[in-house]
Design a protein around this nucleic acid. Structure first.
Lengths: 144, 144
DNA sequence: TGAGATAATTGAGTTGCTCAATCAAAGGCA
DNA sequence: TGCCTTTGATTGAGCAACTCAATTATCTCA
């Protein structure tokens, strides 16, 4: 069986398969900190945007998922003592999310782990090649 | 909240997020034929490699999943009348998979749908850019 | 022949998600 | 002011796709 033949004949499957591998890779990386992908996205966002008001609805929109999902993940993060819900004084339905000290530590670790992978990638194919490939792929993903 | 800032600061999250979007895109495409991703991979493989002996263990290895998963998916495909298990005359533990006529039709439809997306992508960023980006990304995914 | 090794299956269990129903607060508007 | 609609978030049931360990069936070879 020549899988390579097949992959050549249907590049889209190749893209999809590759996407899946990246997803798996990331998932495994985050396992060490007992986080799923969305949880990791959330605390990293908080890390970089700690001063701003981060609301669940924005997170859902930005990361292309449902509010329910975000809500579940935030509850999970809260249970782990990584984040804190704070009622928005201007709108008691909404709230702001903030990182707790432990959450900040975890965020740093997670971001570091991903950066390490990125550097490995750069070493493998070159920084410029990686950058331009990413630009192309991202423009496709965003538009669909 | 400036998510863009965040994405710039951690490109790996960007890759992972993009990968996820592609995965979602593919999954939605396959919904019309009531197939999951692995099922689609399997019948497409059979379509391109119909003459050869395709065994579950090879599929699992090639697509980076467990035998259990492949087994489940094959059962599902069989229940839908798309593939057939045929005992390997040289090894009664193993078997060969073959496409049934309905499975062939489905495979053609699925491959066509993916090709259509590919052409859209090519129109968007140019054939050469897509090719080279894919080469880069795939070399990374394969190695990790 | 009998002791592993190997191919595949099975089914229970997990995870990460969606979706609809619900709650609570906000914002008109007569 | 009181009512109606809209909006932000939560909840919990349900689902799809997967893994993992146990099991079955077959093969290999000394």
């Amino acid at each position: 069986m020549r899988i390579e033949t097949f992959l050549k004949q249907s590049p889209m499957f190749c893209i999809a398969l590759t996407a899946r591998r990246f997803d798996t890779l990331t998932t495994h990386l985050l396992e060490a900190d007992d986080l799923n992908f969305l949880e990791a996205l959330i605390i990293s966002t908080l890390f970089f945007e700690s001063s701003a008001a981060v609301k669940p609805s924005q997170l859902a929109e930005t990361f292309g998922t449902t509010r329910g999902n975000v809500s579940h993940c935030i509850s999970s993060l809260e249970a782990k003592g990584l984040v804190q819900r704070k009622i928005d004084p201007e709108d008691a339905r909404a709230y702001h999310l903030t990182l707790k000290p432990q959450g900040r530590k975890t965020a740093i670790r997670v971001i570091g782990a991903l950066d390490k992978v990125q550097r490995e990638f750069e070493n493998k194919v070159g920084k410029d090649a990686l950058q331009s490939a990413l630009r192309v792929i991202r423009s496709l993903a965003g538009s669909t």
